[in-house]
Structure formats: C-alpha cells, structure tokens
C-alpha cells in the first residue's frame, strides 16, 4: 500500500513494527514502531507518558516526511 501511494506521487512514511517487511514491500521512509498490537502506544506507561511517546513517534514520522531521501531509509533515531 505504501508503495502505491508513493507511486501516485504522494510522499508517505510507514510507521510499522516489522521493519524488514516494510523494507521488503518497498517503503522509502520507515519509522520503527513500538509493538505489533500497539505500534504507537505502550499500555505499560501512564496515560500522559504514553501520549508523549506517541507524539515523539509522530514527530519522527513528520521529520521523515520533511527529509529528502534517495533510497529506503529507516529513521531509527
């Protein structure tokens, strides 16, 4: 899906837990997520902390969208 959206000319960032799959399907901007059942959350954290975590991940995704890339790039930090 990521690839078809990219192919249509819209930059897309893939926030996903299983990075190797994302690399295999051909996502160009990849942000590793937390866990399969809660990629943008962590139920072990307090509500406020969890939201901060999510916000950091979304900010990272937005940064990825603002970054020029030449090839598949995993934004790990």
């Amino acid at each position: 899906m990521v690839k078809e959206i990219e192919r249509a000319g819209i930059p897309v960032v893939h926030v996903c837990t299983i990075v190797p799959i994302s690399l295999t399907v051909g996502a160009n901007r990849i942000v590793p997520a937390v866990a399969i059942p809660h990629p943008l959350g962590n139920p072990a954290l307090a509500r406020e902390e969890e939201k901060n975590l999510r916000r950091r991940l979304v900010m990272k995704a937005l940064r990825a969208l603002q970054t020029e890339v030449e090839e598949q790039t995993v934004f790990a930090n």
Binding site: M1, E4, I5, A8, H14, V15, T17, I36, V58
Partner: peptide, 26 residues
C-alpha cells in the same frame, strides 16, 4: 488486493489535495 486498494486511496487523496501520508501498520 492491497495494491488495488492503495491505488484507489491514493487517487482520492490526490484529488483532495493531500500532500503527505502517514501509514501505520501493526
């Protein structure tokens, strides 16, 4: 199928002037 869905989605997003997409996967 995934390709087909995403092609349809992308066409609508383009039409609606969407400039970027965050796609989340579990």
């Amino acid at each position: 199928n995934a390709r087909r869905y995403a092609q349809a989605i992308a066409a609508e997003l383009k039409q609606d002037g969407v400039q970027a997409v965050i796609l989340t996967s579990t």
